[in-house]
Design a protein around this nucleic acid. Structure first.
Length: 211
DNA sequence: TCAATGATGGTCT
DNA sequence: GACCATCATTGAT
Protein backbone atom coordinates (compact mmCIF):
# COMPACT_ATOMS: atom_id res chain seq x y z
CA UNK A 1 0.00 0.00 0.00
CA UNK A 2 1.33 3.37 -0.97
CA UNK A 3 2.08 5.87 1.75
CA UNK A 4 1.61 9.41 0.57
CA UNK A 5 1.77 11.68 3.57
CA UNK A 6 4.35 14.31 4.45
CA UNK A 7 6.90 13.46 7.10
CA UNK A 8 6.34 15.08 10.48
CA UNK A 9 9.19 16.96 12.04
CA UNK A 10 9.50 14.64 15.03
CA UNK A 11 9.98 11.67 12.71
CA UNK A 12 13.02 13.37 11.20
CA UNK A 13 14.63 14.45 14.46
CA UNK A 14 17.11 11.59 14.34
CA UNK A 15 20.80 10.94 14.29
CA UNK A 16 21.77 11.62 10.65
CA UNK A 17 22.85 7.99 10.20
CA UNK A 18 19.36 6.82 11.12
CA UNK A 19 17.74 9.60 9.12
CA UNK A 20 19.71 8.57 6.02
CA UNK A 21 18.15 5.08 6.07
CA UNK A 22 14.71 6.57 6.62
CA UNK A 23 15.06 8.89 3.63
CA UNK A 24 15.79 6.09 1.16
CA UNK A 25 12.59 5.63 -0.82
CA UNK A 26 11.13 8.94 0.36
CA UNK A 27 9.96 11.43 -2.26
CA UNK A 28 11.18 15.02 -2.38
CA UNK A 29 8.70 17.14 -4.26
CA UNK A 30 9.03 20.70 -5.53
CA UNK A 31 6.66 23.12 -7.25
CA UNK A 32 8.21 24.37 -10.48
CA UNK A 33 6.65 26.97 -12.78
CA UNK A 34 5.94 24.22 -15.33
CA UNK A 35 4.45 21.83 -12.79
CA UNK A 36 5.25 19.54 -9.91
CA UNK A 37 8.47 17.54 -9.82
CA UNK A 38 8.93 14.54 -7.55
CA UNK A 39 12.11 12.58 -6.95
CA UNK A 40 12.33 9.28 -5.10
CA UNK A 41 15.58 9.24 -3.16
CA UNK A 42 17.80 6.23 -3.87
CA UNK A 43 21.20 7.43 -2.62
CA UNK A 44 22.06 9.53 0.44
CA UNK A 45 24.96 10.23 2.77
CA UNK A 46 24.94 10.98 6.51
CA UNK A 47 26.96 13.86 7.90
CA UNK A 48 27.02 14.04 11.67
CA UNK A 49 28.12 17.25 13.29
CA UNK A 50 30.60 17.54 16.05
CA UNK A 51 32.30 14.15 15.78
CA UNK A 52 32.45 13.92 11.97
CA UNK A 53 35.52 15.62 10.43
CA UNK A 54 33.88 15.51 6.98
CA UNK A 55 30.83 17.50 8.09
CA UNK A 56 30.48 21.20 7.45
CA UNK A 57 29.47 21.44 11.10
CA UNK A 58 32.67 19.95 12.46
CA UNK A 59 34.52 23.24 12.80
CA UNK A 60 31.64 25.04 14.45
CA UNK A 61 28.70 27.24 13.56
CA UNK A 62 29.16 29.65 10.65
CA UNK A 63 26.68 31.71 8.61
CA UNK A 64 26.77 29.08 5.87
CA UNK A 65 25.95 26.05 7.99
CA UNK A 66 23.66 27.73 10.52
CA UNK A 67 20.59 25.88 9.21
CA UNK A 68 22.03 22.58 10.41
CA UNK A 69 21.85 23.80 13.99
CA UNK A 70 18.16 24.56 13.58
CA UNK A 71 15.14 22.26 13.75
CA UNK A 72 15.03 18.97 11.88
CA UNK A 73 13.23 18.62 8.58
CA UNK A 74 14.56 21.81 7.09
CA UNK A 75 16.47 22.10 3.82
CA UNK A 76 20.19 22.90 3.85
CA UNK A 77 21.46 24.04 0.45
CA UNK A 78 25.10 24.96 -0.09
CA UNK A 79 27.20 26.15 -3.00
CA UNK A 80 30.22 24.14 -4.07
CA UNK A 81 32.92 24.05 -6.76
CA UNK A 82 31.99 27.39 -8.20
CA UNK A 83 28.98 26.20 -10.17
CA UNK A 84 26.89 23.70 -8.23
CA UNK A 85 24.45 23.45 -5.34
CA UNK A 86 23.87 20.43 -3.10
CA UNK A 87 20.82 19.76 -0.93
CA UNK A 88 20.56 18.20 2.53
CA UNK A 89 17.80 17.34 4.98
CA UNK A 90 18.61 18.58 8.49
CA UNK A 91 18.53 15.80 11.08
CA UNK A 92 19.24 17.77 14.21
CA UNK A 93 18.60 15.82 17.40
CA UNK A 94 18.74 17.37 20.86
CA UNK A 95 20.58 20.40 19.56
CA UNK A 96 23.28 18.32 17.85
CA UNK A 97 23.88 19.57 14.30
CA UNK A 98 23.80 17.18 11.38
CA UNK A 99 22.26 16.51 8.00
CA UNK A 100 21.79 14.00 5.19
CA UNK A 101 23.13 14.81 1.73
CA UNK A 102 20.77 13.84 -1.09
CA UNK A 103 22.97 12.24 -3.74
CA UNK A 104 20.63 10.74 -6.32
CA UNK A 105 17.03 9.86 -7.06
CA UNK A 106 14.54 8.62 -9.61
CA UNK A 107 12.12 11.13 -11.10
CA UNK A 108 8.63 9.85 -10.31
CA UNK A 109 6.67 12.98 -11.18
CA UNK A 110 7.24 15.66 -13.80
CA UNK A 111 9.70 13.59 -15.82
CA UNK A 112 8.72 15.44 -18.99
CA UNK A 113 9.70 18.74 -17.38
CA UNK A 114 13.01 17.36 -16.19
CA UNK A 115 13.81 15.86 -19.58
CA UNK A 116 13.46 19.29 -21.16
CA UNK A 117 15.81 20.74 -18.58
CA UNK A 118 18.36 18.00 -19.12
CA UNK A 119 18.21 16.89 -22.75
CA UNK A 120 21.59 15.20 -22.47
CA UNK A 121 20.51 12.69 -19.82
CA UNK A 122 20.56 9.12 -21.08
CA UNK A 123 17.70 7.11 -19.64
CA UNK A 124 14.77 8.13 -17.48
CA UNK A 125 16.43 6.41 -14.54
CA UNK A 126 19.42 8.73 -14.71
CA UNK A 127 17.64 12.08 -14.77
CA UNK A 128 18.70 12.88 -11.21
CA UNK A 129 21.99 11.03 -10.87
CA UNK A 130 24.40 13.03 -8.72
CA UNK A 131 23.86 15.51 -5.86
CA UNK A 132 24.29 18.72 -7.85
CA UNK A 133 22.11 17.37 -10.66
CA UNK A 134 19.39 16.28 -8.25
CA UNK A 135 19.46 19.72 -6.68
CA UNK A 136 19.21 21.57 -9.98
CA UNK A 137 16.47 19.25 -11.26
CA UNK A 138 14.31 20.26 -8.32
CA UNK A 139 15.15 23.91 -8.90
CA UNK A 140 16.86 24.31 -5.55
CA UNK A 141 19.44 27.04 -4.95
CA UNK A 142 20.48 29.57 -2.35
CA UNK A 143 16.96 30.99 -2.00
CA UNK A 144 15.58 27.62 -0.90
CA UNK A 145 18.09 27.23 1.93
CA UNK A 146 16.26 26.81 5.23
CA UNK A 147 12.84 25.86 3.86
CA UNK A 148 10.67 23.66 6.07
CA UNK A 149 10.11 20.37 4.24
CA UNK A 150 7.41 19.29 6.67
CA UNK A 151 5.18 22.31 6.01
CA UNK A 152 2.35 21.54 3.54
CA UNK A 153 2.51 25.16 2.40
CA UNK A 154 6.19 25.02 1.54
CA UNK A 155 7.22 24.98 -2.14
CA UNK A 156 9.48 22.01 -1.37
CA UNK A 157 8.20 19.06 0.66
CA UNK A 158 9.27 15.61 1.80
CA UNK A 159 6.87 12.68 1.46
CA UNK A 160 7.16 9.26 3.02
CA UNK A 161 7.48 6.75 0.21
CA UNK A 162 7.16 3.00 0.18
CA UNK A 163 9.33 1.38 2.80
CA UNK A 164 12.55 -0.04 1.37
CA UNK A 165 13.39 -3.59 2.58
CA UNK A 166 16.63 -3.68 4.55
CA UNK A 167 18.00 -6.29 2.17
CA UNK A 168 17.87 -3.77 -0.68
CA UNK A 169 19.96 -1.16 1.14
CA UNK A 170 23.71 -1.14 0.61
CA UNK A 171 26.34 0.97 2.36
CA UNK A 172 29.83 2.23 1.62
CA UNK A 173 32.22 5.14 2.14
CA UNK A 174 31.03 8.60 1.20
CA UNK A 175 31.82 10.03 -2.20
CA UNK A 176 34.36 12.81 -2.56
CA UNK A 177 35.26 12.66 1.11
CA UNK A 178 38.92 12.16 1.95
CA UNK A 179 38.57 11.82 5.72
CA UNK A 180 36.73 9.15 7.65
CA UNK A 181 36.98 6.59 4.87
CA UNK A 182 36.22 3.89 7.42
CA UNK A 183 32.74 5.20 8.20
CA UNK A 184 30.29 3.67 5.67
CA UNK A 185 27.76 6.46 5.87
CA UNK A 186 26.69 6.35 2.24
CA UNK A 187 23.42 4.47 1.73
CA UNK A 188 21.81 3.48 -1.54
CA UNK A 189 19.08 1.25 -2.92
CA UNK A 190 20.67 -1.70 -4.63
CA UNK A 191 20.09 -1.95 -8.37
CA UNK A 192 18.86 1.56 -9.02
CA UNK A 193 20.27 3.01 -12.26
CA UNK A 194 20.39 6.45 -10.65
CA UNK A 195 23.03 5.59 -8.05
CA UNK A 196 26.07 7.70 -8.78
CA UNK A 197 29.49 6.18 -9.37
CA UNK A 198 31.94 6.28 -6.49
CA UNK A 199 34.88 8.67 -6.58
CA UNK A 200 37.37 8.91 -3.81
CA UNK A 201 38.08 12.20 -2.16
CA UNK A 202 40.94 14.57 -2.88
CA UNK A 203 44.45 14.78 -1.55
CA UNK A 204 44.32 13.58 2.00
CA UNK A 205 44.16 9.86 2.47
CA UNK A 206 43.08 8.19 5.63
CA UNK A 207 46.33 6.29 6.03
CA UNK A 208 49.49 7.99 4.94
CA UNK A 209 52.40 5.68 4.09
CA UNK A 210 54.90 5.57 6.90
CA UNK A 211 58.34 7.00 6.37
C1' DT B 1 33.92 2.00 -20.44
C1' DC B 2 37.00 4.34 -17.44
C1' DA B 3 40.26 7.66 -15.71
C1' DA B 4 42.05 12.27 -15.92
C1' DT B 5 41.09 17.22 -16.05
C1' DG B 6 39.35 22.10 -16.60
C1' DA B 7 35.70 25.24 -15.26
C1' DT B 8 34.44 28.29 -11.55
C1' DG B 9 33.37 31.00 -7.08
C1' DG B 10 31.97 30.94 -2.10
C1' DT B 11 33.84 30.14 2.42
C1' DC B 12 37.10 30.00 5.96
C1' DT B 13 41.99 30.53 7.85
C1' DG C 1 45.14 31.82 -0.81
C1' DA C 2 43.80 27.06 -0.21
C1' DC C 3 40.22 24.07 -0.19
C1' DC C 4 36.11 22.11 -1.73
C1' DA C 5 30.05 16.61 0.12
C1' DT C 6 30.88 18.24 -8.44
C1' DC C 7 29.94 17.80 -13.56
C1' DA C 8 30.81 17.39 -18.44
C1' DT C 9 34.20 16.64 -21.56
C1' DT C 10 38.21 14.67 -23.26
C1' DG C 11 41.35 11.14 -24.49
C1' DA C 12 43.09 6.54 -23.70
C1' DT C 13 41.80 1.43 -23.79
Amino acid sequence: MRVDRLFRREELALDPVDLARLLLGAVLEADAPEGRIGVRLVEVEAYRGLDDPASHCYRGKTPRNAVMWGPAGHLYVYFVYGMHFCANVVGTEDGQPGAVLLRAGEVVEGADIVRKRRPNARGNGELAKGPAILTSVLGLAREQNGLDLTDPGSPVRLRAGERVPADNVRTGPRVGVAMAMDTPWRFWIDGSPAVSTYRRGGKRRQVRPAG
